[in-house]
Design a binder for these strands. Structure first.
Length: 444
RNA sequence: GUGGCCAUAGUUUAAUGGUAGAACAGCGGAUUGUGGCUCCGCUAGUCUGGGUUCAAUUCCCAGUGGCUACCCCA
């Protein structure tokens, strides 16, 4: 157990632990040192852009009542039936870790009377969601979403603004994904279509070709027949009636408006009549951002959303049209170019190195002074050796390093080292702040 | 929930039925006040349980975990 080298200043060497460490829970992910750069890259640009678009930041609790999801997402949806983390609280109340964001957001909208705020209300939500899936590529039991919602706007402008925002974000991030769009009609016209669809699939020659899953879907949720990836079912879906042909006047007009605007803005999209979504609450416009995957048969969805004009009502609110969109952070992360992330990282301006007790104290004060002057100062007060401190300054790729030792402290000076050239000059300590400010603004 | 592949230092990996070798990273030194390059040293590992065996990290079984495809979804 004895250490030969008692000068070791690194992590303290611990005796071997007697107990086995506890592993993280399946499907959960830690964000490790260094990983946050990519998250910041995504989040910072989103928060900024969403603010320009007039979205207000909101949050809702991780824990909600089970009934909320049962009523909104659909009693038969997979999310509710097999993927939710739910439990009974000591009080006997049935609770759930939120599996998606929209129901909680809508609940808050109703509960706090957000309909009294200026409408349309645009909200930005960011947080973790929980689904008890089997983990795989881009899927974790805890994942994070960015949710954009627009309340109180019945017109196609809501969709347009969302799609425009998404388009801008994808461009900023350098992600070349495809936007799929479709309309599911409304309560008036959708039944006509589903009737036709069921009729088509019930024809004997068609029905016989369906996979077992799809035979079930035919009874439970016919729209999802279009979504199957079995070759035979895909072939059948090709010739199936298309919902576009069955949309009522207003629904058709709405969709056409959305598409016209997109054309006008030069936003490329793919009108995909096969696109249906896994949640029950959508009306009219639905869309998805998809990324073709090399290994998987289906493209990976980076995000998805649509209009939910009746959800607020069905959760007990006054009738309010609404439209929302969610992006999956972990899936976006999968598609980021490392060099874009690296380039987005801000480099500190100055590194402050010190040698000895006195200089260290003095440098703490100088650190504060420079920081308040608006300089990005870094330091490593725990390191003793100048060598070690310079190595860190080098890793940080700072332009200048300040060195304050005993000698400088006595003279009232400080060393200014240019890290690129390696040249050094002695500067009056009182003048270091203006000198740095001047040099850095010149090179920035 | 179903299927496939996998499990050795922090990471990437090598090897073996006789208790494991490297690279990178970290820390220290060469240079006790000067980074990047170099050289040297140190730290650190066979997922868990059971079985076969004189002996298991190696072979077998189970579990757990990871990756991945499917269902479904962001």
């Amino acid at each position: 157990m004895s250490k030969k080298n008692n000068q070791l200043s690194g992590p303290t060497i611990q005796p071997r632990p007697a107990m086995r460490p506890i592993h993280r829970v399946k499907g959960m992910k830690d964000i490790q040192p260094g990983n946050y750069d990519a998250w910041n890259f995504l989040l910072r640009s989103t928060f900024k852009l969403a603010e320009f678009h007039g979205f207000e930041r909101i949050d809702t609790p991780v824990l909600e009542s089970f009934a909320l999801y049962e009523r909104s997402s659909g009693r038969t949806s997979d999310i509710v039936t097999k993927e939710m983390y739910s439990f009974v609280d000591k009080s006997g109340e049935r609770l759930a870790l939120r599996p998606e964001a929209t129901p909680g957001i809508v609940r808050a909208y109703i509960e706090h009377g957000w309909f009294n705020l200026p409408q349309p209300l645009k909200t930005l939500w960011y947080g973790p969601l929980f689904r008890r899936d089997k983990p795989q590529l881009g899927r974790y039991r805890q994942h994070h979403q960015l949710n954009f919602d627009i309340f109180g706007e019945a017109g196609p402008w809501a969709e347009i603004q969302l799609l425009f925002l998404i388009h801008e974000l994808l461009q900023d991030w350098g992600i070349k994904a495809q936007i799929d769009i479709n309309s599911l009609g409304c309560a008036d016209c959708r039944p006509n279509y589903t009737n036709e669809l069921v009729k088509y699939y019930k024809e004997k020659k068609h029905r016989e070709q369906l996979c077992p899953d799809c035979r079930r879907r035919l009874l439970k949720n016919p729209l999802r027949l279009l979504d199957c990836k079995e070759p035979a079912c895909i072939a059948l879906a090709q010739d199936a009636p298309q919902i576009i042909d069955y949309l009522c006047g207003p629904c058709k007009e709405h969709l056409v408006k959305v598409l016209e605007f997109l054309d006008n803005l030069g936003i490329q999209y793919n009108l995909n009549s096969q696109l249906v979504r896994g949640l029950d609450y959508y009306d009219r416009t639905v869309f998805e951002v998809v990324m073709p995957s090399a290994s998987a048969q289906r493209p990976l969805a980076l995000g998805g959303g649509g209009r939910y004009d009746h959800l607020i009502e069905s959760l007990g609110g006054r009738p309010t049209p609404a439209c929302g969109f969610a992006l999956g952070l972990e899936r976006l992360l999968l598609n980021l170019e490392p060099h874009k992330v690296a380039a987005s990282k801000e480099r500190p301006d100055v590194f402050l190195a010190q040698l000895g007790e006195g200089p260290r104290l003095k440098s703490l004060r100088l650190f504060e002074e420079l920081r308040q002057a608006g300089l990005a100062v870094h330091q490593s007060f725990t390191k003793e050796s100048l060598k070690g401190q310079l190595a860190i300054a080098n890793q940080l790729k700072v332009k200048y390093t300040l060195i304050l030792g005993q000698k400088e402290l006595l003279d009232g000076t400080i060393l200014l080292r240019d890290m690129e050239s390696g040249s050094q000059e002695v500067v009056d300590l009182k003048k270091i702040k203006p000198i740095l400010l001047k040099r850095l603004t010149k090179t920035r």
